[in-house]
Design a protein around this nucleic acid. Structure first.
Lengths: 130, 130
DNA sequence: CCTTGACCTTCCAGTCACTGGAAGCCCTAT
DNA sequence: ATAGGGCTTCCAGTGACTGGAAGGTCAAGG
């Protein structure tokens, strides 16, 4: 398979796949013409990474997870530790965004949103009410 | 005021303040020694930007909001439009993160997290259940 | 007067995970 | 022979900073 084929099969842009090779997540062979040649294992890895990324894991997490996947003597505790750390980061980000959402919603509701210049949003930004 | 003073007063790192000058959000004067000299207006702008950033506005949004703030003949509708666009982005990000959170939580709960190698987390990453 | 240390300056590079684009080779079909 | 599409590399840019090096400035203490 050439890069276009695995791009279509994995849903990842060819550019991203080349980048993953750059940072050492995959290592496809090369044909005589210099083209990357992907086998089923490469495609499987790409799908693994795509799925991991979609769950919020960093590319370094992906590297660790791929290693654990390949390590038959891994402890599931090690995998869970990586997932739990990611889960905590996700939860923290959600909390932060929800705080923003709450404030923004209040401010947007308070603003008339008409042609007049007075605006509680700007007032808050200029001098937040405690 | 020198940069250290406004850094302390605004809670922003000096590096960040220099960066804001670089991208044209603020324009402090310079003393004879080449030092940046900040007045109350500069500090006010920095606080405005810090507050806006903490509510998820991009630096480009900040630029627009500062302009609207300075424009006495602004329409509050213009401000609200910027805030609503941001609110939508925040909501979209929350939804995305919550989907991750849901999946991750399920996977983490299903994993024993002991010394054995079998792990539902890796199984899902390798071949997500539809 | 000199030195020390805290503060300031600029500039370059790195972060993260890509993404865009240019220049050029390869392959197939007409 | 040429036209197109796909492939290659390399360089640069994104957003919003952050770290660090090399060097100028200033106030206080010995």
């Amino acid at each position: 398979m050439n890069i276009g084929d695995v791009a279509a099969a994995s849903g990842l842009p060819a550019k991203t796949i080349r980048y993953y090779e750059d940072i050492g997540l995959i290592a496809p062979r090369r044909g005589e013409n210099g083209y990357r040649t992907f086998d089923e294992k490469d495609l499987h890895k790409l799908n693994f990474v795509a799925r991991s990324r979609s769950l919020g894991f960093s590319t370094e997490d992906c590297r660790a997870l791929l290693e654990l996947y390949d390590d038959r003597s891994r402890a599931s505790a090690d995998v869970r530790a990586v997932a739990e750390a990611n889960l905590e980061k996700v939860a923290a980000k959600i909390a932060e965004l929800q705080a923003m959402q709450k404030t923004l919603t209040t401010l947007v509701h308070r603003c008339h949103g008409d042609a007049r210049p007075d605006c509680p949003i700007l007032e808050d930004l200029a001098a937040p009410a405690a």
